[in-house]
Design a protein around this nucleic acid. Structure first.
Lengths: 148, 148
DNA sequence: GTGAGATTTTGAATCATTCTAAGTACCAAC
DNA sequence: GTTGGTACTTAGAATGATTCAAAATCTCAC
């Protein structure tokens, strides 16, 4: 069952939206409620299904809009950041990727073994990871692609 | 300009394909050549455009097939691993994600500040990152979602 | 209450990717 | 050298997530 927002959460929503000049609407409340109710990293479609339980008339487009708005004002995070076309690289050495916001270019960043180790060490017992994907997003002033 | 494969690269291709009972074909050679020629993490469509310069008749479907084959036999790596629907989470504390291969579930993994620091430290000078995305892929025997 | 601007809705459009069915190439056995 | 099998490629249709466009609705300041 999806509970109503607590006073505190409602204020949080209000404040975050307000800061960027946007309003609290029933739809936004519904979507936010859904996100807080079950923190299982739902897809848009899952959010949509659940939101309809609370507000039967909401549309899928609105759910997309709300989520975009929330991401924009820092209320929620996108897990598959900037879903774009899949990219391929023939560099098989362990490395991270850095996507330059400005150019869209992706650079390889060498990944020293001790960093990999420290990453693995944060996994709780019972979690066994074969693949670690790391990607940075930001700006690079570098002239040329580094390590490749 | 896209050069032909070196002897060495051709052998590499041959061996990797052979291991999984697959053949070297002109199309696969062309696609592999393209991948090695410019290591800029191209999208499928970019690979397709470039492959056509080398082999005008090649089809998009074949490029998809070749890339899938290469990933399967470990010749290349996919940058946007498992492109799926975008997911959302309201956990704003810095954390990594762990996707369980079996269930498809995504778990939050707490990210200690020192690990973040060590990650930032691998960026070459001139690279300034605002967002770091980390995702593990593997198996979890845990009963329940941990830190959330 | 009116009007401007923001928000929502529906349905169409787009884009990456996958699927399907038919065609082609190659190799082995005869 | 023909036959058959298997892997591979092709074109185009189908799918699925997401975005867009235009009309309808809401909200708030006045």
């Amino acid at each position: 069952m999806i509970q109503n927002l607590t006073e505190h959460d409602r204020e949080h929503l209000q404040e975050a939206l307000g800061k960027s000049g946007q309003k609290v609407t029933p739809q936004r409340e519904a979507v936010f409620t859904v996100l807080l109710a079950e923190r299982d990293h739902p897809t848009v479609d899952e959010v949509f299904q659940r939101a309809r339980e609370v507000m039967p008339g909401v549309s899928l487009a609105t759910v997309y809009n709300c989520l975009e708005t929330f991401v924009g004002c820092g209320l929620v995070r996108q897990v598959n950041h900037e879903r774009e076309s899949t990219r391929y690289c023939p560099n098989l050495a362990p490395h991270a990727h850095f996507r330059d916001k400005e150019t869209g270019r992706v650079h390889d960043i060498e990944l020293p073994p001790e960093v990999i180790k420290s990453l693995r060490s944060i996994l709780p017992p019972g979690f066994d990871s074969e693949v670690i994907e790391i990607s940075f997003h930001g700006r690079a002033q570098a002239k040329d692609s580094p390590a490749n």
